[in-house]
Amino acid sequence: MLLQILIACGLRLKDARWLPLDCVSRDNDGAPYLLWINRKMQRQAFFPISEALADAIGEQQQRTRDRFPHGCPWLFPAHQANLDGSTPMSDTYWRAHSERWLTDLNLTDETSTPVRVTAHQFRHTLGTRLINANVPHHIVQQLLDHMSPEMTAVYAKIHNKTVRRHWESAVKINADAQPVTLDGDHPLADASWTRLSLVRAKVTLPNGYCGAPVQTDCEYANPCLDCRFFITTPDFLAQHRRHRADTQTAITDAEHAGLVRIAEKNRRTLSRLDAIITALDAPPVAGGRPQEAADAAS
């Protein structure tokens, strides 16, 4: 139960161990919140939780009440030397329990080395996931009850590094199915990544990214396979395949209706989509380029 709270709410281990028995509050709409004490800053804080977690906490509350019918202030009371329920779960007990759990799971990394997971890693994971989900920084700061925006900014830096690493390693092609490369060792690599981040945020496309300079105005609000700034990756293969199926249907309908020019226009789109899908389906290699392009460059 304590592990569920760590994962869902990102509490520090001490704050989770010292949760009060009555730690679930509800607002006027009936939405549940975890009431916890930030002992690092000695203040009360709240974290919105799911009904499922609220129910699970309710079951833990009942177990504690059954064990201590005369009252206990803690959601997780100590299991030993705690006859009156006045002592919360100890740090040593939790760590020993966690180690046994990891051993039973036989959790290992890609080299078959046992993985050690600390309670604080769940806090970092939650913070990073919130940033990845585009939750505003000030909201993340409030949810994790950080003392300053700088503490929350750590997760944004982790997110940026992760996105950049994924982008640099991914296969990237343009509308002509030609590789688009970003040399990480180039003196302008950081500046180039910043530019790409800005233009990616500038125009949201369902099947790729707009690589146009930030100052460039585009008369179209939708992706254009004839645009020299268009960039796409394997993340958008499903969209390209759907686009291809729709285009093939449009060609068939146009041919049946005798609309020769419309059919021909869609055939050009179909040809581009076939090239893009083929290039994105090619096995990736170092540098994020299709195999054929890497062979040609060698």
Rank of each mutant, 00 (worst) to 15 (best):
L225Q: 03
T87M: 10
T252P: 00
A297Y: 02
F47D: 01
D217W: 03
L6Y: 09
D27H: 06
V171L: 09
T247P: 04
I277G: 00
T108Y: 06
M147V: 13
E168H: 15
A177W: 11
R195E: 14
R65S: 10
L144Y: 01
D91R: 12
N28Y: 12
Y220N: 09
T162A: 14
W36T: 04
A177T: 06
P69A: 12
K157C: 11
E110P: 03
P234I: 07
K40M: 00
L19H: 06
F46A: 13
R65C: 05
L102T: 08
Q141E: 14
L6D: 07
K161E: 14
C224V: 13
F68D: 04
D183F: 12
H120A: 08
R165A: 15
E168V: 13
T128E: 00
E110K: 06
R95P: 00
E150H: 05
P69K: 08
P213W: 00
R95D: 00
A293N: 03
T125C: 02
I139N: 01
T92G: 08
K161M: 11
R261Q: 07
N160D: 13
A81E: 08
D104T: 09
P283C: 02
H186I: 06
Q42Y: 05
A175E: 02
I37G: 02
C224A: 14
T118W: 14
G85V: 06
A54C: 09
E292H: 04
G258K: 01
I262H: 13
D109Y: 07
A119M: 00
T118H: 12
I262F: 05
A201T: 02
N82F: 11
P32E: 02
H120I: 00
T194W: 14
G85C: 04
S148K: 09
V135D: 01
F76E: 13
R65T: 02
D217R: 05
A294V: 15
V260Q: 03
R289K: 15
W36K: 04
G10E: 14
M89R: 05
V115F: 07
H79E: 14
I231M: 11
D226L: 15
F76Q: 05
N134D: 13
A119K: 01
I5E: 01
D27A: 04
V199G: 00
Y93E: 04
A45K: 10
K157S: 15
P284R: 01
F76G: 08
L21R: 13
Q141W: 13
R39L: 04
L259Q: 14
R63I: 03
R228Q: 14
L237N: 12
P213L: 02
A201G: 15
E292A: 12
N38P: 08
N132I: 01
E110N: 09
F122D: 03
C224F: 09
F230I: 04
P234N: 05
K172H: 10
C9D: 04
F46N: 08
Y220T: 10
A245I: 07
H97S: 11
S298R: 06
Y93M: 02
L270M: 07
C23D: 08
A201F: 01
R195P: 02
